[in-house]
Design a protein around this nucleic acid. Structure first.
Lengths: 341, 341
DNA sequence: CTTTGAAACCAAAGCGCTTTGGACGCGCAT
DNA sequence: ATGCGCGTCCAAAGCGCTTTGGTTTCAAAG
């Protein structure tokens, strides 16, 4: 059933039917009622592609999710971010189209989605240093919002980010307050913007308290359980091992805890862990008392917010940039305690 | 730059340009070269929506990912499945459009995607008992492939599944062989098809060896770390506690291990765990020696395969159903050992 | 009684592409 | 010469919708 058929059926023109359904004012109340009833009865659903072609708006937004080229890893936070964003899109009648591309080939994917006019706007995930995507999108005039921030770009775009530097500074401060002096930092991939900010935060805390920032204790790696384990294990093997661990994700923290256990140590007693917690749905940080002491911020909420901002940006392309830096909460859990010995 | 502009520029008709680019034979070699060169030079990219409207094919496939209504949980295996499928789509020039919907509202999402002709085909995730989606898609004539199987539907559709029953029977057998008699089973949500099959497998093993299937030791829950922890903790509190644990996902198994540790027990020595491992990229099951003894099968590979099957189904709607049941590998890891005491 | 204007509706022109059904020219067999 | 087939190319008709620019009707205003 298409517009033409429906309008023939009703003895009306396609124009009127389209308008009746679209809620435009220039159609009589009774007529609108009839049209609506007929549409419902016959299960008429406008063809979205045709509408898209006619209006120039596709009612779709694009996400491109990168998969780390080497290890083929796909960041698990995507699932929750997408879930959050998806709620908003569904509500607003938007579709979400995603491309999965190998890290680095992203430019192509962005071009494809943005330029082929496949989408009305895009979300930029995981901005990196000197990220070419911002310029690309800016040039093509595609509305976009960044989840995170781009280091050195002019700050005239929309973004939602967490206060990475501040959060990690607080995390480090906490460990220092507890008496830890050898503090390890297991960070995400070096080229990611959030990793840089977190590094800055940790360093700032160390410097402020007159502690050295031992490069051996600072690691960049993918954020997997295994990577957390490997790094922690190695660090524990050193003479004068770390007693405090600042970790970039809960999943890595699980690996760190495993390494501690293998070494016969108990987190919260023999060593302390502070991690960032994205509040992933399938990986709750304990129930009543948190498993890990953590700086936390819901990535799902961020997804929701990014989507909201994007949709309103699409509606009003001009207007001041919406820029939000979310303060992450510091929750005390079972993984930290005063240093002892 | 659109077709018309490009063809004007070349002094050709849109027809010829379209054909030259599309690789159709009725265009001269030299002309084709010129057209291609001009297209590349001016960065011409056909508008996909217009092409979709003209051809009736949208070059997009739909995924609807459900989020558990109560706990808002989104299954983490999606990330990897999507990544696998996405590779195939990208290769073939297909888009992937996803809807995130609350568990149960899925019918609406399927109808929207399928009927509004937004997509050429769909993947059905997480089939449940008496799943209405199959009929829905069948009626609308939308090509689809199921990741998993639907219990009582006629088996005339395409699917890729793992041998849940067999894998879990083997897992249980292994524990029994190791001397375990009190075997707990932490399963996924009861209404999921895979959970049913796994239950059947576990029960079959128990029955075959003359062991009782104690309902107190069989749990259905969401597959989170926390749920694994909670269930295991409770079971360990019982008099005559379980010594063997069959677990439905690696992430739950982490919870079980944590519960064991809290109880002062070591997995592989004081109690044994066998889990299913979906080989998620960010949650490797150890490096050389697996952390957990596990039945394993790559969900990412399944995603790839489902996508391949779907694309060829779209190309040839008729033809015999493609049905694959993948045998999962049983790998021995550090989490199992002979019973002792 | 004419004018004006609002209300309700419609015809037709796109949106940018694909594809059908020719048209045209040329070489070859008839 | 005529006809045929083939290789190249093109005009135009859609695909299903939205939207511009009307037209018609009718009541109120002048």
């Amino acid at each position: 059933m298409n517009l033409k058929e429906l309008s023939d059926l009703l003895g009306l023109s396609p124009t009127t039917v389209s308008r009746a359904l679209g809620g435009y004012p220039e159609v009589g109340a009774e007529t609108r009622r009839r049209v609506r009833a007929a549409a419902a009865e016959h299960g008429y659903r406008p063809n979205r592609r045709a509408a898209a072609l006619a209006t120039g708006r596709s009612m779709a937004v694009g996400h491109v999710i990168p998969t780390d080229r080497g290890n083929e890893m796909v960041n698990p936070v995507f699932a929750d971010f997408i879930a959050g964003a998806g709620e908003v899109y569904a509500q607003a009648g938007y579709d979400m189209t995603m491309s999965v591309v190998s890290d680095g080939d992203e430019a192509k994917a962005y071009r494809q989605l943005a330029l082929d006019r496949g989408v009305d706007g895009m979300i930029v995930h995981g901005p990196r240093e000197d990220d070419p995507r911002i310029d690309l999108l800016r040039e093509t005039g595609t509305p976009f919002v960044v989840h995170g921030r781009v280091p050195d770009a002019p700050l005239d775009y929309d973004f939602v980010d967490v206060d990475n530097a501040r959060a990690f500074r607080r995390a480090t401060d906490l460990l220092i307050d507890l008496g830890h002096r050898r503090i390890a930092f297991l960070n995400g991939p070096a080229h990611m913007d959030f990793a840089r900010r977190r590094r800055d935060g940790v360093k700032a805390a160390l410097v402020a308290r007159g502690l050295p920032a031992d490069p051996h204790l600072m690691r960049h790696s993918e954020m997997s359980e295994q990577a957390g384990y490997d790094a922690a294990r190695e660090m524990l093997g050193n003479p004068d091992p770390a007693t405090g661990f600042v970790v970039s994700s809960l999943i890595m923290a699980l690996g760190v805890r495993r390494a501690l256990q293998d070494a016969g140590l108990v987190a919260g007693r023999d060593a302390s862990i502070v991690t960032h917690d994205d509040m992933l749905s399938y990986l709750a940080n304990g129930r009543e008392t948190p498993l890990f002491t953590a700086t936390r911020s819901s990535v799902r909420a961020a997804g929701r917010r990014c989507a909201e901002i994007l949709l309103s940006r699409i509606a009003r392309p001009d207007g001041p940039p919406v820029q939000e830096v979310w303060t992450s909460e510091l929750v005390l859990g079972a993984s930290t305690g005063p240093i002892r010995d």
